[in-house]
Design a protein around this nucleic acid. Structure first.
Lengths: 122, 122
DNA sequence: ATCCCATATGATGATTTCATCATGCCGTTC
DNA sequence: GAACGGCATGATGAAATCATCATATGGGAT
């Protein structure tokens, strides 16, 4: 078990957090949870198109990182963000990313005369 | 080459960003850059204690993710954050982490009667 | 009790990342 | 221009992660 987070250099714990976030499906899941505040596994499965056990594995990773919490109610399991700051983290990441992409496309159009990317907004 | 970031689902690009952050040394480097706004490779090497080529490899990862930019001036290379939002991202991550750790130690002391962690501040 | 649905866990090979070593490149100094 | 220091790149084995499959658990319905 790799998790006695306390009393380790903070930057290790932080890197570990990012490791938990470093997968497209997990980002997708967290974004769905950010938007809805409680989502059943069934709904997540439909939204993501993931096979049940694969989804469950990613949820397990998110649980191990204490990013989400689950509650069982009558044969269904519901997930929610453990901490609202997670949504904020995703938002800041998006902002950073858009900044980086914009700088990139600038550099590209400088170098190769390409037009700026059309729809960066989401 | 894994980087034609534009026109890919945003959550993939985002996961990719977190992947770039998902290593203790890289976090450490970014924190040093957040604090000083420009740091030479030599200084980074001293602060981190990393072997030159290992450090260089991590810097290369950060460059590939467009998180840092480098400039060479007279036989030394200086790095800085490519975007100030990166510092913000790290700050939000820290806040989230402290929240999670606090909740954890609560749960622990609930379960095992341990005292709350003494020095969570940094 | 038995079956079924929803979810979780375990095991396996394929892929990716890490750490180390050796080597290459670019400026500076002599 | 030869030698050196600062930094980067390439290659290799070890370790971690991903995706898929098979299997287990646990609650509700019959």
């Amino acid at each position: 078990m790799p998790f006695s987070q306390s009393q380790r250099p903070l930057y290790e714990v932080k890197a570990n957090l990012f490791k938990g976030l470093a997968h497209p499906f997990r980002i997708r899941i967290l974004e769905l949870l950010s938007a809805a505040d409680e989502v059943s596994v069934t709904a997540l499965q439909q939204e993501t198109g993931l096979e049940a056990s694969h989804l469950s594995q990613h949820l397990s990773v998110l649980r191990r990182h204490h990013l989400v919490v689950s509650e069982r109610r009558a044969s269904h399991v519901y997930y929610r963000l453990a901490d609202p700051s997670t949504a904020e983290l995703l938002a800041v990441a998006r902002a950073l990313l858009l900044g980086i992409l914009a700088a990139d496309s600038d550099r590209l159009s400088d170098a190769e005369g390409l037009p700026a990317l059309p729809g960066a907004g989401r």
